[in-house]
């Protein structure tokens, strides 16, 4: 039971990050390598904002967490849209490889820029306490508050995103751009606005995940995003990238896998290798992911 709860919480974090990957990929067919670093930026935004908000909402309260998450998400949405405007938009019609390499460059720039002593510095910083420390006992398992909150947030965001994509004008425009950019533009969709919005949304998701991840982890540093980013990316692919429910499914799967493998003696050091190995196997057997539909290549 304890393992199940831990796995659920960890998996929900991965699912949250994977949702961001999937949103951007769904519209642009491109992996935003900088997503993991937006997560890190979100965590730092939370780190700086939380002490200022603490007097308003009270130390370690749900209100404080919500306000911190909200502000971090707004900040990251701006940064994400800015990155899109500066680095990706000029490359819109270039080969995919060019965009991919640029994305890797942006990711490295954020990692090493933030490690520079003049920015955040490379050392690990303790993350402020956002939630009451006492734990909840539940069906024989001990659960920290944040582990209760995370699955609820993920669930809520999944439903919110589904509503956004399927039921709003913007969502319809996103689906149109994803289907065929040129045709969408001819139908009067403002592609640039839709893509900026998608990036802002994806980055906000990264920030939410970043703050929640940091509340669980012991500290934050400029390279903190890489590992969860990679695993969440695997999760998005395992579930079928571009598919919202698939991202959550993949995230939960990998979170559970990591929790259970981490508990086994002997193989616990190999948990990352096992997660990545699973990605490779899934890509070999079902390249479109568990929930993805196979695409026929057109000549």
């Amino acid at each position: 039971m304890q393992q199940l709860v831990n796995g659920l919480a960890l998996g929900s974090i991965y699912a949250l990050i994977a949702l961001g990957y999937t949103m951007v990929y769904g519209v642009l067919r491109f992996i935003n390598f900088a997503h993991a670093d937006l997560l890190m930026l979100g965590a730092y935004a939370g780190y700086f904002v939380a002490p200022a908000l603490a007097p308003v909402f009270g130390e370690a309260s749900y209100g404080l967490l919500a306000a911190t998450v909200f502000l971090a998400a707004v900040a990251c949405a701006g940064v994400g849209a800015g990155i899109e405007y500066l680095a990706y938009r000029p490359l819109r019609n270039r080969p995919k490889l060019t965009v991919l390499i640029t994305a890797i460059g942006v990711s490295l720039l954020m990692e090493f820029g933030c490690q520079h002593p003049a920015v955040f510095g490379a050392k690990t910083r303790p993350f402020p306490q956002l939630l009451p420390a006492e734990q909840i006992h539940f069906l024989g398992a001990t659960v920290s508050r944040v582990d209760m909150v995370i699955p609820l947030v993920t669930c809520g965001l999944l439903m919110g995103l589904w509503w956004l994509v399927q039921r709003t004008r913007m969502g319809m425009a996103m689906r149109a751009v994803s289907f065929n950019q040129q045709a969408a533009a001819l139908m009067g969709v403002n592609n640039n606005r839709v893509i900026s919005f998608t990036f802002a949304l994806g980055s906000a998701l990264a920030a939410v995940a970043g703050v929640l991840y940091s509340v669980r982890a012991s500290g934050i540093d400029p390279l903190m995003g890489i590992r969860p980013g990679l695993i969440a990316f695997s999760a998005a692919v395992v579930g079928g990238i571009g598919d919202l429910a698939g991202a959550v499914l993949g995230g939960l799967l990998l979170g559970m896998l990591e929790t259970y493998v981490g508990g086994l003696p002997g193989v616990s050091n190999y948990r990352d290798a096992i997660s990545f190995g699973m990605l490779v196997v899934i890509l070999l057997v079902r390249p479109s992911g568990l929930l993805g539909r196979a695409q026929v290549e057109k000549v």
């Binding site: 460059g105 942006v106 990711s107 490295l108 720039l109």
Partner: peptide, 8 residues
């Protein structure tokens, strides 16, 4: 930092 800027 210079490397990554160079790539972009």
């Amino acid at each position: 930092i210079a490397y990554s800027l160079l790539i972009i």
